[in-house]
Nucleic acid binder design. Sequence first.
DNA 1: CTGAAAGCGCTTACAG
DNA 2: CTGAAAGCGCTTACAG
Lengths: 364, 364
Amino acid sequence: MSIACSPSPKAPSVKDVARLAEVSVGTVSNVLNGRSSVRPDIRERVEMAIADLSYVPNPTAQALRTGISPLVGVAVLDLANPFFMEAATGMERRLYQDGCIMALSSTHSDVEEEARLLRALAGQGVRGILLTPTDSSLEVALEVVSRGVPVVLFDSPATPKEMSSICVDDRAGAALAAQHLLSLGHRHIALLNGPRRVRQARDRLAGVEKAMEEVGRRKDLTVYEFDAFTAEAGRSGVRAMLAGAGVLVPGGAADPPAAHALIPPTLPPAFPTAFLCTNDLIAFGAMTALRDAGVRVPEDVSLIGFDDVPVASQMSVPLTTIRQPMAELGWASADILLRNPDNVQHQRFYPELVTRSSTAGPRS
Amino acid sequence: MSIACSPSPKAPSVKDVARLAEVSVGTVSNVLNGRSSVRPDIRERVEMAIADLSYVPNPTAQALRTGISPLVGVAVLDLANPFFMEAATGMERRLYQDGCIMALSSTHSDVEEEARLLRALAGQGVRGILLTPTDSSLEVALEVVSRGVPVVLFDSPATPKEMSSICVDDRAGAALAAQHLLSLGHRHIALLNGPRRVRQARDRLAGVEKAMEEVGRRKDLTVYEFDAFTAEAGRSGVRAMLAGAGVLVPGGAADPPAAHALIPPTLPPAFPTAFLCTNDLIAFGAMTALRDAGVRVPEDVSLIGFDDVPVASQMSVPLTTIRQPMAELGWASADILLRNPDNVQHQRFYPELVTRSSTAGPRS
DNA sequence: CTGAAAGCGCTTACAG
DNA sequence: CTGAAAGCGCTTACAG
């Protein structure tokens, strides 16, 4: 089944409007741009012509002429991560205010893809780019800036003088999480982290280590590094931990989980009493793995996340977590870009602890 | 803190390249576009000049001149819904193959916002638009098409002759879910649906009703309509159901959940033995609410979802669901747009049952 | 207050 | 094979 599309008759241009209104194109442009008071009657004639032809200015031509485009590129690490989607919602809201349109894409945390995307976007003549960088050298981003396209770094503490940035204090947030666990009396804490090549992973690790050190408890921390900030990674990682501790018979990670253990297993005394997860998705997977093994949260093990994505409060045990103001972060980054791109500034937000049900004192 | 950005020296244009290479701009354009064999030595001179100036063509000018833009607009219902994000990933992959760039935005299922976005995108001179429609009249979409911007409808069975569409058979999928439950021996099935103003909700309802009717069991179905396709809606909806059945003391929906019931409550005989949720997010919320009340899945109540978003397999009880090939759907819709936009075609996919742990026979 | 003209950066027939 | 010219649709000084 295939039907040819009705070929659209060429769209009307300023010329057509000018002819119909019997004025010059310059005048049409003037009324379009609300310029140097056009005589009211002329203005009206032009407006009628515009309405008659249902004329709409060609933004490509406008962009070429003025060098300004309504398009703003956004490059995040991962479209499937709710953190970025919440942020994107905030960006979109701000962009909308200025009539801009958001071109959202993902770099998949890949330096090559980031470079390609950045160049494509800049080539597109976008008004600016909101970037969560993967390449810490910022090489291509800098190139793009030097081509005249403003870039603001999102969720990045990098503070080059060529571009603005916005971030939250990941170390402080991670420290908050550790302190909360400590204040609850936890002795042995496991840090469930994402891959160290991701800057957020490194900073959160540093924050936790610092907090533990401050109270002379550095050795009560065991660090686990998973290969992604996903529920799946959290789940299989915790399964492996459990198997290693003899709590669970190791099985194919891809297998369906063991039937629910009806009797809570006895955890070895050395088993961590709390898991500090560096994002909510990992915490989600961890909670599932724990539950599969019959380990109760928070009775047997406390669990804390990071981000406070919507799913955090919806988990079977509502998650205590470190909340990042995602939508505000997004909004603010767009605001910096739109308001004054040449004015480089570095904004830092502070995350806060949200206490829900997944943390409690250590099991006795 | 504010530092003026180094004002970028105007970017080089074809003229600059032509001057440096001592040829005309036409020739530069010819080598740029690989045209009518330019003499090899000239081509080389031009290429050197391009390299020297690190010249990159201005896509805005190209777009104006050729009327072709690499930008493809994508308008989905909700950025926070993993179904759309999985689909977007597929679209992006296909778009990338043709060097296109994806401009992703959300209509928030709002007719007004959809209209605004559509017009903005069309105004932008995009090469085409991938739209999940909210406005069933398709009025603005049609307007956009008549302006010459091809639109392909995503996740929509609307089959106007003006634009292509791609969808999955929601009725068939919903019927599949009902049949699975029926074959397990369930007697009383509750349909947990999203808002009826959303087309997917209506079609899935119809599919379930039909399947029940076919075996003369229409009256074993009870339909619940929630106000959103979210985990939150599923959770509070099921809580209300439970309260209504006397299983749970009604509480403020926003309150933290009741402490885990340690003793499985006895469900009234009339209480549904299975919940058929019209998307995975609702199922997720339902599972949480059930768990909060001490109702076991699948021992006390079976649960089936729809979509198979990544979280489905990661839930505390891995979810049986109706899988939609999200990434393929996205890929295919972009493919239709890119390959031959004037050739309208309607593609329909079929969903399939994925059996995991959340469904079993009815409690006795 | 309005019109004629130049020009944004590129591409495309069309001569030569 | 190459160059000169026209033109995509708009905006912006600059005369009048």
